[in-house]
Simulated scan of single mutants.
Amino acid sequence: MPGLNFKLDRRVFLKAFSLSALASLWPGKAGSTVQFQNDERFPSHYIQNRDVPGFFIRSANPFPGVNMDEWSLKVKGLVENPQTYRYEDLFGFKMIAQTSRLKCVECWSAKAEWEGFHISELVDKVKPKPEAKYVAFQSADSYYESYTLDELLRDRMLLVLRMNGKTLSANHGFPLRLIAPFKYGYKNIKYITGIEFTDDRKRNYWADFGPYSVDGTIQPGIDHPLDYGKKPLSINGGEVFHFFDKRPDLKRKG
């Protein structure tokens, strides 16, 4: 599988996949996300779910991370100019920094400063055809997501390369992830390897294997922010802001 550090043992992968599907069916859990927490059935260097203070780590399928000697970003589908980008190419786009929360269906949220570029930068390069109404994402860990093109062109939707002033870590999506502040965390796909423009909606991982909607827009309810001791606070739906958060600010880096 391109982008992995070495060939993933088939039995390990199938075990991860089957456990992912089963975990999505377990009742009585907020969000019913997969609970790989330092699971000894997977090699110790695999990226797994961990409740790290400040920002929890969540991935659908434990995997060893991306091999940058093999990684590229392929942008294809209903476009006039398909493109393939190496990692260094992505820094040629106009960089933006913003602080926003990732809101998980498990009911917690975490805040970070994200740096990356708006998908309109890609749109200008690849020139989608008029019938291209949707965009599908593929990840190195076999995850996949989809959006309408209109959603992706909204403000504060970023393809992210850096987090809190540093290169994205493997745990948080290196080399490239999506930040969609008004969508639940499962829509914020990590380890992106492919982007495809389509005329119909492609599948979504957690709509296939869990109880979550394809849309994934954050609904009114309660949030337990990690930077507030997980104390419950009401939210109105859409992007999450609390009384101690700064309101949106876009800072162009060049």
Rank of each mutant, 00 (worst) to 15 (best):
K103F: 11
L14Q: 00
E151H: 08
K253L: 12
I119D: 02
A30L: 13
N67V: 02
R203L: 15
G3I: 01
P175D: 12
A140Q: 11
L4H: 02
P181L: 07
A16V: 01
T84N: 10
I119V: 00
H242C: 05
V123W: 11
S109E: 12
R101D: 10
V123C: 08
G210F: 14
H45I: 08
L22I: 08
P82E: 11
G229R: 00
Q48D: 07
R252A: 00
S72I: 07
D245G: 05
T99A: 10
N171I: 05
N171K: 14
P248V: 00
G221D: 08
Q37P: 01
G116L: 03
H118I: 05
K129T: 11
T84A: 06
P2E: 05
S139R: 03
K231C: 00
L19D: 05
P64N: 09
M157E: 07
S18T: 10
I222H: 01
I218N: 14
G28I: 00
T84Y: 00
K111I: 12
V52W: 07
N38M: 03
D89H: 09
K74L: 11
E80I: 12
H242L: 12
M68T: 13
R247C: 06
G237M: 01
N61G: 01
F197A: 11
G238N: 05
L102N: 12
T99V: 14
L22N: 03
M95E: 02
E88C: 05
N38D: 13
E121S: 06
K253N: 08
Y87Q: 08
W71G: 03
N188Q: 14
V160G: 10
F243C: 05
G28F: 03
S139T: 06
F117C: 07
I189R: 11
N171F: 13
K166F: 10
Q35A: 09
Y144S: 04
T193R: 13
G77V: 10
L158Q: 09
S72R: 06
C104W: 11
V79W: 11
S20P: 00
F117Q: 09
I119K: 01
K74Q: 09
I96D: 04
G31Q: 09
N164M: 10
K230V: 05
Y191H: 14
S18K: 01
G116H: 03
F137D: 10
T193D: 13
V214D: 15
